[in-house]
Nucleic acid binder design. Structure first.
Lengths: 233, 233
DNA sequence: GCATCGAAGTGGTCGGACCACCGCAGTGGT
DNA sequence: ACCACTGCGGTGGTCCGACCACTTCGATGC
């Protein structure tokens, strides 16, 4: 047994685990600056190349942030930072998994909308109304999509659960939604979606969680069913 | 305008996007082997070092898989592959976000259990029963935790939504659960959890989705409330 | 026909060099 | 005394070339 050489997996993988451990153990706090790549590599006894790969990996995971010329920092480690990669899943998913993703979104979105109905502030409610109005005032698909996203984002934020909001954000990532909704909207579903959005807004105004949950579930469910039918057909 | 030099972001970041695009465009199929690191670097006109960082990043995201001596391959791109990183979020979360994560889990777990009640096969149901019995037959916390995880994993799998199961898997990652449950179980909550697990199993046997949903929600909710109280206290 | 071995090819690691950028102390002016 | 500018040191970003560890598969020998 050589104490100095545990030797499990690649050195890069070990470096990733070490840095993660430093964070969980509190050695590295959110927002804190790390030692330089060169120092870190020396500390773990590996080359700078390998250490850079480890840092890059943690960067794409939203754990670290590298600022050119300044240094490497731990992110705030908030839900939004860490769940940014969730969008990758949505973007790389095709076929039946798109339905599964929408099913997950239906469950979470309906819950978030119900929570929002009970907690939303007048300011947030007004913002939701603005996006609803803007959505109905234009025919530009791009603009509609943007306000649609903002509409649901504002509601998710009002639910008071940042983690849930971050997951929903990933499930509604721009490329994902654009792919699915292109076909959906082309079939003249504008009127239906407008009606559904109005129903959600009405439930929020009435502060009726049950109605809000039902309206949101129906809204996502419509798209879900359409997609399911298109795949099996 | 120089067509050959778009120059946005780091070359590594661009390489990551290029490879992701190749997959979404169908140039690279799941399971397929990629060109060698050296060839890929040459194709994109970057150094092997930068290309390696890009590959490493996509590897930790569960998109690519590098086999030493053999080559680089696209994973099957199934939910489990891509959502493995979800466990990182759970492991790095502390304080209030642990409650948020449990809240998300409560929503998804209750839905998954309800779905399972309607679809579970006799074989799967028997397996769930085995884990329940094994969980009650030992006093070793490690073993209890293992069977507890398997119990819920089996139910999530029976729900028929692989994406939902993968997310729940991340929300129940070993280190995460161990951290939260250590304190919970130490307060003599064994009896309560056994009762709750039995209730879930009973609802599955009765094929009663509503009862299953309620039992699962109550089960996760108990831990959620305990954690919330411990944080505010 | 089959087990063995070895060479070619692949990812993994290393060290060094240079570039692009940021931050700040020092400088010069007003 | 204050401020804008400048220069330098330190940092991450990129590249190169070499070598190691491992897999693969065909050639070799039995």
């Amino acid at each position: 047994m050589d104490e100095t050489a545990p030797q499990k997996g690649t050195v890069t993988q070990r470096a990733i685990e070490r840095i993660k451990a430093m964070i969980t153990e509190g050695v590295l706090e959110p927002g804190q600056r790390l030692p330089t790549e060169r120092d870190l590599a020396a500390q773990l006894g590996i080359s700078r190349s390998s250490m850079r790969e480890a840092i890059r990996a943690l960067t794409v995971l939203g754990v670290l942030e590298a600022r050119h010329g300044s240094g490497i920092y731990v992110t705030r480690l908030e839900a939004g930072d860490l769940l940014e990669t969730f969008g990758v899943v949505a973007d790389l998913s095709r076929g039946p998994r798109l339905v599964e993703l929408l099913q997950v979104r239906r469950v979470l979105e309906s819950t978030a909308t119900a929570l929002a109905a009970a907690r939303i502030t007048p300011e947030q409610l007004a913002e939701v109304g603005n996006h609803l109005a803007a959505m109905n005032a234009t025919d530009d698909p791009e603009e509609i999509l943007a306000h649609d996203l903002a509409f649901h984002r504002e509601i998710a934020a009002a639910a008071g659960n940042g983690t849930m909001a971050a997951i929903l954000e990933g499930l509604s990532s721009r490329t994902f939604r654009a792919r699915v909704w292109r076909g959906y909207q082309e079939e003249g579903a504008f009127a239906r979606t407008r009606r559904e959005h109005a129903a959600i807004h009405r439930a929020l105004v009435a502060r009726d969680p049950e109605a809000a949950r039902a309206a949101a579930a129906a809204h996502v469910g419509e798209v879900e069913e359409w997609l399911r039918a298109r795949l099996t057909g």
